[in-house]
Design a protein around this nucleic acid. Sequence first.
RNA 1: GGCCCUAUCGUCUAAUGGUUAGGACACCGGCUUUUCAAGCCGACAAUACGGGUUCGAUUCCCGUUAGGGCUACCA
Length: 442
Amino acid sequence: MNKVVTRIPPSPTGRLHIGTARTALFNYLFARHAGGSVVFRSEDTDRARSKKEYEDEIIEGLHWLGLSWDAFSRQSEHAPRHRELLEQIVAAGTAYVSKEESKMEKGKMVEVVRLKNPGRSITFHDEIRGDITFDSTELGDFVIARAIDDPIYHFAVVADDMDADITHVIRGEDHISNTTRQILIQEALGAPRPAYAHLPLILDEKRAKLSKRSGTVLSLHDYRDEGFLPEAMVNYVALLGWSPGTDEEHFSLAELVKRFTLEGVQKGGAAWNREKLLSVNQRWMRELSDTDFIARGALEAVDEKVLRRAVPLLKERTRTFDEARELLSGELSCLFSSPKFSREALVAKECGTPTKPLLQTLLVPLQDLPDNATPEIVKSVLMPLADAEEARGKGGRGALLWPFRYALSGQEKSPDPFTLVSLIGKEEALARVKKAIAILEE
RNA sequence: GGCCCUAUCGUCUAAUGGUUAGGACACCGGCUUUUCAAGCCGACAAUACGGGUUCGAUUCCCGUUAGGGCUACCA
């Protein structure tokens, strides 16, 4: 059996699309699983729309996901070979230059090349869907080149796949119908027929065609910039249309390579679901070490030490690094600078015992706390005070804990006061509680 | 219109003739809780429809319906 060779043939006419990324991933997984190789081919024959910057972005994005290939080429570089092949089949009579359609373009005579269609039924085997049969007659003698030196997509693809010894063409379902004409071209060229596998399409959240209008973010780089981990993108996208056949859902790229088979590929289209992606991403973020979390999220704060200690909090509360950055500059800004707060919010939970004396009971225990106390230690020392208030007053623990937490954070919503104390340190905590007491004295 | 592909909870999916149709995400409820999260526990929720085949169909066949793709001298 021949060594497996798959291909990743994006056309650099736009940003890296999540659908393109998924097709690339499946080609990569299939080839690597089989110990085969991958060919990257930039389909840049559409001169007007192809741009180097798009090509760069596509390559960079696929590398970011962790994909790699063993050969790189640009379709535009194969022009002489395409012409040679075209002339060859015209000479052989399986294609012809359509003289009656000739026209002048930019002072040059242009004559379209058509394939002589034998007009019969074509059956090919799809590795995912089984045998598929088309009647090729309806295609007629279709155009395979705008001019002898200007082949259209179908011809270029077949020629390039032949020359690169591609064994498996794994692509989107939108190419099923195209397969017939490509097989006809293959036969004219005397090229071997590769195995075909047509992947189900990715649909938007409402199960409609993916489009800019759908509101679904389509560009892989936008996900990267928003703070999604490549591990999560690979994991999520692999499971969109593929399943290992078990309940397992957490896969690294290397694990996917081990497990991937075409039998696990779904036939029907799969709807994109951002919520699920978010949850997959959160799981991968949580698996990062604290150091990696900061580095990979490019997180910054005025106090590196506090930031470091706050990572568990970020892991608990955020699903992307954008959310982590937002939390640091918003709700958690109180970790890095003394918050402003209002008297009203401080006494919001007051009923029974006045807030001021309650806060005062915290001062000595706070002062006696060891340096670098963990949240557990802080809690073990201070919670009894809240319990005591609960036992005696109407306000419950909240009578003490609410103003305490608010004095530390200046926020209606924040982590618990024990965690805050351990993050900002007892001196700073003391200062903030004293400030709150001062406000209550006014 | 023609040709082709597809069809299990809201979503991603498992189960390839025999299961109380399983898991995950979301949603809802409870526990915990000063708040917000997180965590734990639980509930809700599907074989599109109609015919066959079979002792028995999610599973095999046919039809209907619905969705999708192709129908370019774009890729």
